[in-house]
Computed example of a mutant assay.
Amino acid sequence: MTTSMPATTAKRLTARGAKTRAKIVAAAADLMYVQGVGRTTLDEVVAASGVSKSQLYHHFAGKDMLVRAVIELTGERVMQRERDALGRVSTMAGLKRWRDALVQNNALRHGAYGCALGSLASDVADHDDVARLALASLFGQWEALLVSALQRLKDNGTLPDDASAEQLATGLMGAVQGGYLLAQTAHDVAPMGTSITMALDHIENLSRKA
Rank of each mutant, 00 (worst) to 15 (best):
1 M>I: 10
2 T>Y: 12
2 T>A: 15
4 S>E: 15
6 P>G: 11
6 P>Y: 09
9 T>K: 14
10 A>S: 13
11 K>H: 13
12 R>H: 15
12 R>D: 14
13 L>V: 11
13 L>W: 09
14 T>Q: 11
16 R>S: 15
16 R>V: 12
16 R>K: 12
18 A>C: 07
19 K>D: 15
19 K>M: 12
20 T>A: 15
21 R>I: 14
22 A>G: 07
23 K>P: 05
24 I>Q: 08
24 I>H: 11
25 V>E: 13
25 V>M: 07
28 A>I: 10
35 Q>D: 15
36 G>H: 03
39 R>M: 11
40 T>P: 13
40 T>E: 13
41 T>G: 10
41 T>Y: 11
43 D>V: 08
44 E>R: 09
44 E>A: 15
47 A>K: 14
48 A>Q: 12
49 S>I: 04
50 G>E: 12
51 V>E: 14
53 K>D: 15
57 Y>G: 08
57 Y>K: 05
58 H>I: 10
58 H>D: 15
59 H>W: 04
60 F>V: 12
61 A>I: 04
62 G>V: 04
62 G>M: 03
65 M>K: 01
65 M>G: 06
66 L>H: 05
67 V>S: 05
69 A>W: 01
69 A>L: 03
72 E>M: 07
72 E>V: 13
73 L>H: 13
73 L>V: 07
82 E>H: 14
82 E>Y: 13
88 R>V: 15
89 V>K: 04
90 S>N: 13
93 A>C: 06
95 L>D: 06
100 D>C: 06
100 D>R: 12
102 L>Y: 01
103 V>Q: 00
103 V>E: 01
106 N>Y: 00
108 L>I: 06
109 R>V: 10
110 H>M: 03
111 G>Y: 01
112 A>E: 12
115 C>G: 06
115 C>V: 05
119 S>N: 06
120 L>P: 06
122 S>K: 09
124 V>T: 08
126 D>M: 10
129 D>Y: 05
130 V>H: 05
134 A>H: 09
134 A>W: 01
134 A>C: 06
135 L>P: 02
137 S>P: 01
137 S>N: 14
141 Q>R: 10
143 E>W: 00
145 L>K: 04
145 L>F: 09
146 L>N: 07
148 S>Q: 15
151 Q>F: 02
151 Q>I: 00
151 Q>P: 01
153 L>E: 02
155 D>T: 13
155 D>L: 11
156 N>T: 04
158 T>A: 12
158 T>H: 02
164 S>A: 04
166 E>C: 02
167 Q>H: 11
168 L>K: 00
168 L>F: 01
170 T>V: 05
175 A>C: 08
175 A>R: 02
176 V>R: 07
177 Q>G: 05
178 G>K: 03
178 G>R: 01
183 A>Y: 00
185 T>P: 00
187 H>L: 12
188 D>W: 11
190 A>T: 13
190 A>H: 02
190 A>V: 00
192 M>N: 07
194 T>R: 00
196 I>S: 01
200 L>K: 00
201 D>A: 15
202 H>Y: 01
203 I>S: 00
208 R>K: 13
208 R>Y: 11
209 K>V: 05
